[in-house]
Design a binder for these strands. Structure first.
Lengths: 189, 189
DNA sequence: TCATGGTACTCAAGAATCTGACTATTCCTA
DNA sequence: TAGGAATAGTCAGATTCTTGAGTACCATGA
């Protein structure tokens, strides 16, 4: 019952279609919540049935019509309750770390390759987040924006995504280097 | 189908019972994989049926008997295949970040409290990880251990858990401070 | 001595999630 | 002028995960 709150939080700033929501769960919101498009469509339908979001049809000329959803007052009240309730510990699942954990007993070459790939991905995300942060604060300095800005929620989570990706990037590079060194340099002295 | 690999990876270093495995998924392995005890018991049963782990009964005097599991050669081969296959992007789900995302439109007091709570938790984890790292390298310097140690996999993932928790801790403290300042200091100038 | 907490599991039901396919239109490119 | 990518979804089925309860035994402290 928590995907619903992630969806509500994502819809706070703009009216979005299911399709756009799915995009944003692949980029921005993906920093702290993962979900597939099918789930989002299903969740939007449930949220609408429960009156927490309101949808409206938008007819388009040059592409298929879409339904835009916005959070209702009831939806906001639900978020309010959610924020006040105690949070579950965050949950992480990382294939790559499982591979690193096994890395002495398993061929490291593909693991190193995947670490490098993930590092490249992290660099792209970092760039994206940095440009998003700039966009959010529209020319204001960070201090000033965080003190006086109207809407800082997305900025703060973006900041979180940034530190996460920076940490992950450093880790990937370091681990790849270590495993590489052990492969080429003789291990046991 | 990936919990199985996390379980195999966790059993590489020691024979564990389902109960001990559950403990380790609550502490060490929890850095990169989340699972409940019930899932682990179920997964162990499946892994044994598939011949990827072997269990043996250990009779105990002063407490209930237990079954210890270790990875078979087939299990290791399965991990090998897994490590060579391309990894799925890691998946994160964080209630607290959802609340921070909504924080301009929702009462921040409980969110701040939860950030502080999470920070305390992170500090405990960091201490735990640091002592684990020390234990892993048994007196050796880090450089030396990482170059020549027999088994560095768990050390590397523990290092990952450490940087993650450090990043999370800093984020929590910073965000709590920012939200606090906005609450007390008048927002709009 | 009685409650509490740790060890060691098991079971069932229901909710959530993932896999994989499928429809339909338009724009852009080769 | 056909093929592919992007927009905008839908559906069914299988698997996985969570919730909540329950069993049993021993040790420790009040």
């Amino acid at each position: 019952m928590a995907l619903r709150h992630a969806v509500l939080a994502a819809l706070l700033d703009e009216e979005l279609s299911g399709y756009q929501l799915a995009k944003s769960f692949d980029l921005g919101v993906a920093n702290f919540w993962h979900a597939l498009p099918q789930q989002l469509y299903a969740e939007l339908a449930k949220l609408e049935a429960d009156g927490l979001v309101a949808g409206r049809e938008v007819v388009q000329e040059s592409r298929p019509n879409k339904r835009l959803f916005k959070v209702t007052d009831e939806g906001l009240a639900e978020l309010e309750r959610f924020a006040a309730a105690s949070a579950k510990p965050s949950m992480l699942r990382d294939d790559l770390a499982v591979k690193v954990q096994s890395s002495d007993l398993v061929d490291t070459a593909p693991v190193i390759a995947q670490l490098r790939e993930r590092a490249t991905f992290a660099r792209a995300k970092i760039e994206l987040f940095e440009s998003l942060l700039l966009k959010f604060r529209k020319g204001l300095g960070e201090e000033e924006f965080l003190r006086g800005g109207e809407r800082i929620g997305p900025y703060l989570t973006c900041l979180g995504g940034l530190v996460f990706e920076q940490g992950y990037l450093e880790w990937c590079e370091r681990i790849a280097g270590i495993l590489e060194a052990r492969k080429s340099g003789g291990r046991h002295e």
